[in-house]
Design a protein around this nucleic acid. Structure first.
Length: 757
DNA sequence: GAATAAATTGTTTTT
DNA sequence: CAATTTATTC
């Protein structure tokens, strides 16, 4: 194996093949490179590819690693098992889950499904959902599962109060519900795999034999269940190689335990530790900023990143009046960079919370800048798509009550709440799945609903039968026909309706794509993909568009130019971490991750006033800003702000809160004020490219993104040229020359125009 | 009893 | 602001 392309430390990582290995890899230190070379080297030393397991954090990372290994070793590279924990477990369970009393066609419940089970149980138990909200129960259950605590285990280490008792009861009932529905939630995939291994030693042994060399990437973000699984698998071989960076542990809220990586050397006394400290990604300035910020955390593993790269540009800092100005400044910078021949594909805008993306999107549309947004709503999470998926799940797994309830009256077939309640009661009484009640309809229902239910039952049975003799895509097409799922939207001629029809069409396309790309396609396997594939997994960064995403999503990625928006107290760091040191340290690690995404240029912005979650706040600049040495920052934009947004200050002197206070001090309802500003949102422009549909975003900040000579598109008058911009701030007006309509003048702050290139 | 219109309420991060 | 709950009409 030729390891010349590696530095000294990377080479050590790739050459240490036996025993436990800890690779402490700083941001941008080429850890994926080291890992792929190590795997290739193992194969080179005669290890069979199928005896190697590599666990990554996302499916996309898995795919990339498989490709990189293949390109190093050629044939056989794709025989290496590379997948996420969840995909691996799903695959293991698909084989042997019958030993645990489930069937192989089990359903994987997503977040929504979990919530609906819990909400239903809360109702059934007659629990006050204000004292115990569903989301809290959900996170409690998830926490418990991540720690491998069954309901009784959890209870035995909780305070013996009524509240814990209720949580215990709900957790217990939740578990039984899922079991009855032949369904597993995300956490179950791990828990049940461990259960399988614990109860069936021969199964465990077969996987121990199979996975002689185990690799875990992003080890700092593993939880106790994942840790246990890894330990169990490598107990005999002791060939475990983990890669991670304690400074990039950002999933503590999801049960990830940073101690897993901090204590690795205690766990494996003879572990070889390799530190990758040379950064190949960022300029010296950016790296120094990141190093200084993270130095404010305590209890880190010792390591110091360095680079041979030049100093580079300073970090550009801007203080905006509000979130729209911030967005406008970013758009203006992007336009300037584009003029300097930088591609939009090299740029990314990162933010703490998904909710921040909306304003950015609106402004990007106006400025005519192509962008893609990741996170937020997945394609498979759209209503119309989820409905089809729910049908498919019911057909594959008739015990799946949650999915059945979702579609029993979708599209409308006159099966209302009271009918459903009765069906559920009847099914519960006879201890059978809800599906059976469609055929064995309870006598207690009156004639009309009974007819509707029976018709629906016949439709479903018909579908189940026709699945036998056709391909998956043919079947999905037939299903959409018979259920009239598409027809109902085709009648709707609005943008939303058209969008839904398109999404349904695209769904059929995705099924067909899957069918062609897979050796042995099955509906079960397809549904598993739907459940486990994230938005980011399907992302392509090839297109020349600015990438928008949360800092969390950006982990593992890099961009030449990064905009980091919303660096304010309460936003980043999140207000929820204020009174918890542990969480605050995680916020700081998150900031470290954000900064280290940038290769060449980093732009940071914050706003003195921000409307977020429908509330106006005046936030101080983020503490993380103070942790970056002044000498690395160019803050001249702040003093130029008046020039970029002339007259902008005026409108910020009398900010109008949307609602003064929802409740008066005495507990009576207060009077809402209303902004008086009509915000025409842009609908249907997700992952957007075509700005032609854009409506007006009333904002004086938009002035900054239009200049004389620009070509613009008006919603009514079509394309024209900007001839003149008069006045400033709220009073600013824009004169546009249209070929067909001649010269027109508009108030710039509300004109429905977008820039075109 | 079901479908629709109006009112209320809560939002970090996600495999 | 959208998702969900509640009131009202058919």
């Amino acid at each position: 194996m030729n390891l010349d392309g590696l530095n000294k430390d990377q080479r050590k990582a790739a050459e240490t093949l036996e025993g436990p290995v800890l690779i402490l890899a700083g941001a941008g230190s080429g850890k994926t490179r080291a890992l792929t070379y190590r795997i290739a080297n193992l194969i080179d030393h005669g290890v069979k590819p199928w005896n190697i397991l590599a666990i990554t954090f996302t499916n996309k990372a898995a795919k990339e690693m498989r490709e990189r290994v293949s390109s190093l070793v050629g044939e056989g590279g794709d025989e290496v098992w590379v997948s996420t924990f969840h995909s691996m477990c799903a695959r293991i369970l698909r084989r042997d889950i019958e030993k645990l009393g489930y069937t192989r066609s089990f359903t994987i419940y997503d977040d929504d499904d979990q919530s609906s089970v819990i909400k239903d149980l809360i109702k059934q138990f007659n629990i006050d959902d204000k004292a115990l909200p569903a989301r809290e129960i959900k996170s409690k259950i998830s926490d418990a599962k991540n720690k491998l605590q069954a309901p009784d285990d959890w209870f035995s280490q909780s305070p013996r109060d009524f509240r814990s008792q209720q949580i215990h009861d709900l957790y217990d009932a939740y578990e039984r519900r899922l079991r009855h529905a032949n369904a597993l939630d995300f956490d179950d995939l791990l828990v049940r795999t461990l259960e399988l291994f614990a109860d069936h030693p021969p199964v465990l042994d077969s996987y121990r034999d199979r996975f002689q060399y185990v690799h875990v990437d992003e080890y700092q973000d593993t939880n106790f269940a994942q840790y246990s699984l890894v330990k169990l698998l490598t107990k005999k071989s002791r060939n475990l190689c983990v890669v991670g960076d304690d400074d990039q542990s950002i999933y503590g809220w999801r049960g990830a335990d940073i101690k897993n990586i901090l204590d690795f050397e205690k766990d494996f006394k003879d572990a070889t530790v390799v530190k990758l400290e040379q950064n190949y990604r960022s300029t010296a300035n950016i790296l120094e900023a990141a190093n200084q910020v993270i130095a404010h955390n305590e209890g880190r593993m010792e390591k110091s990143l360095w680079t041979e790269l030049p100093e580079g540009d300073p970090i550009e800092l801007f203080c905006a009046g509000d979130e729209r100005e911030e967005a406008a400044w970013i758009c203006d910078r992007i336009q300037q960079l584009t003029i300097a021949e930088r591609s939009c594909g090299d740029m990314s805008i990162l933010y703490r919370a998904n909710a921040q993306s909306r304003v950015l999107e609106e402004m990007l549309v106006r400025a005519g800048i192509p962008y893609r947004i990741y996170g937020g709503l997945r394609f498979y999470d759209r209503k119309e798509v989820k409905d089809i998926v729910a049908y498919l799940r019911c057909i594959v797994n008739p015990a799946d009550d949650v999915s059945l309830r979702r579609i029993i009256n979708q599209p409308k077939r006159s099966i209302g709440d009271s009918t459903i309640t009765e069906l559920v009661r009847y099914a519960g009484e006879k201890e059978m799945p809800l599906y059976s009640a469609l055929v064995d309809v309870p006598e207690t229902l009156s004639a009309r609903p009974r007819k509707c239910v029976r018709e629906f039952g016949e439709l479903m049975n018909e579908l189940v039968l026709s699945r036998e003799d056709m391909s998956i895509s043919e079947f999905v097409t037939l299903l959409i026909e018979k259920t009239q799922l598409k027809v109902q939207y085709e009648r709707d001629l609005s943008d939303e309706g058209k969008n839904r029809v398109e999404n349904i069409q695209e769904f059929i396309g995705s099924v067909r794509e899957y069918e062609e790309a897979t050796d042995d396609p099955s509906l079960e396997d397809y549904l598993e993909n739907v459940a486990l594939v994230s938005d980011l997994d399907t992302a392509d960064f090839e297109s020349k568009a600015v990438t928008l995403m949360t800092v969390h999503s950006s982990k593992g990625l890099e961009f030449p130019i990064v905009f980091l928006a919303g660096l304010e107290e309460g936003v980043f760091p999140s207000g929820r971490s204020f009174n918890d040191d542990q969480r605050m340290e995680e916020e700081r690690r998150l900031c470290y991750v954000a900064i280290t995404r940038a290769r060449e240029q980093l732009y940071i912005s914050y706003a003195t006033q921000r409307m977020l979650y429908n509330q106006v706040n005046y936030n101080a600049p983020s503490r993380f800003l103070n942790e970056i040495p002044k000498r690395l920052i160019n803050d001249e934009w702040i003093s130029k702000r008046e020039k970029i947004f002339p007259g902008a200050m005026d409108s910020y002197q009398h900010p109008t809160p949307k609602r003064a206070s929802r409740y008066a001090a005495d507990g009576t309802a207060g009077v809402g004020l209303g902004t008086g500003v009509n915000v025409l949102g842009i609908s249907g422009v997700q992952k957007g490219f075509t700005p032609s549909l854009a409506k007006a975003i009333p904002s004086i900040a938009v002035a900054a993104i239009f200049k004389e000579g620009d070509r613009v598109m008006h919603r009514k008058f079509g394309e024209g040229d900007v001839l003149e911009i008069r006045g400033a701030g709220n009073e600013a007006r824009i004169v546009i020359g249209f070929a067909a309509y001649g010269q027109k003048e508009f108030a710039l702050s509300i004109a429905p125009i977008v820039k075109v290139n």
